[in-house]
């Protein structure tokens, strides 16, 4: 039972991060390799706002979320906007550079020490007993809930929202979308904003649960296989991929060797790339564009 809970929590983490990869890839075919760093930045932003609004955890969280949303939009406006119309590979490399830059900047600003943003916010991370003898921490439960809400909202938005439909249209055929009066820059900025927001949310909740240091970006990288296993352009796929990767990781840690934790997602990724390179739910012909 505890195993199932652990799998759910890890899957929720991966899924929440993976949807950021999917959102950006789906509208602009760009793989955002700085996503892990942007997620970590979100967690540090929470640390910053936590010291500002120490008694109001809601205010601190809202401020950090808004800050990360604007970070995403700014990344697009000042960096990725220049890369539209260039080769996709150039854009991907730009995100790699952004990631390295962000990681360096974050060490300089916040140092490599371990932080616990939950402390200034006075959030007690109590363990909740679940039926079946399993236990889950409050923050982990919150994380699962957030993931469910984010996915529900995103799927509804993309399926029924007028701008959600336009976002899908822009992802399929940017030229035709532009010829139908859609401002592509607005769509891309929205995708970057939403992607950074969801990633940062994951970063914040992980930091509240387990503390925060410079290794958090690795989690972002480990979520990338989840997105790819599901098929990079499908949100439902990201959810399924996260579940598969998380299940494989937890089960192998439990029954084989805890040291495997860092490599399992990538083993799953390699296996997937051999069997079905376009992912579970991905569009087949998208492959040649990667």
């Amino acid at each position: 039972m505890q195993l199932a809970v652990n799998i759910t929590v890890l899957a929720a983490i991966y899924a929440l991060i993976a949807c950021g990869y999917v959102l950006v890839y789906r509208v602009s075919r760009v793989l955002n390799l700085a996503h892990g760093e942007l997620m970590m930045l979100g967690a540090y932003l929470l640390l910053m706002t936590a010291t500002q609004f120490s008694s109001h955890w809601l205010a601190a969280l809202t401020a950090a979320v808004l800050l990360s949303l604007s970070t995403g939009v700014l990344v697009y406006v000042f960096l990725m906007r220049k890369m539209t119309g260039e080769m996709v590979l150039a854009a991907v490399l730009t995100t790699v550079a952004l990631g390295i830059l962000l990681r360096g900047a974050m060490v300089l600003i916040w140092s490599a020490q371990q932080f616990y943003p939950a402390q200034p916010l006075q959030i007690a991370n109590v363990a909740i007993a679940l039926p079946g003898g399993a236990r889950i921490s409050l923050c982990a439960a919150l994380l699962v809930l957030t993931t469910a809400l984010v996915y529900g909202a995103l799927l509804t938005f993309l399926r029924f929202g007028r701008w959600g439909v336009r976002m899908r249209a822009a992802g399929q055929n940017p030229l035709l979308a532009a010829q139908r009066g859609i401002n592509l820059h607005a769509i891309y900025a929205l995708a970057w904003g939403l992607s950074t927001l969801t990633g940062a949310l994951a970063g914040m909740l992980i930091a509240l649960d387990a503390g925060l240091n410079q290794t958090m970006a690795i989690i972002g990288l480990k979520a990338f296989p989840a997105a790819l296993v599901g098929g990079l352009d499908s949100l439902a796929g990201a959810l399924a991929g996260a579940l598969i990767v998380a299940a494989a990781e937890i089960l192998l840690i439990n029954y084989v060797d805890p040291l495997l934790s860092e490599v399992v997602p990538f083993l799953v990724l390699i296996a997937m790339l051999i069997v079905r390179p376009w992912g579970l739910f991905g569009t087949r012909e998208e492959l040649d564009r990667v």
Partner: peptide
């Protein structure tokens, strides 16, 4: 490439701004 192939007819009509 004059329509969005993965959208339904109704969604295609909703796209133009």
């Amino acid at each position: 490439d004059k329509v969005f192939p993965n959208l339904t007819v109704a969604e295609n009509l909703a796209v133009p701004v």
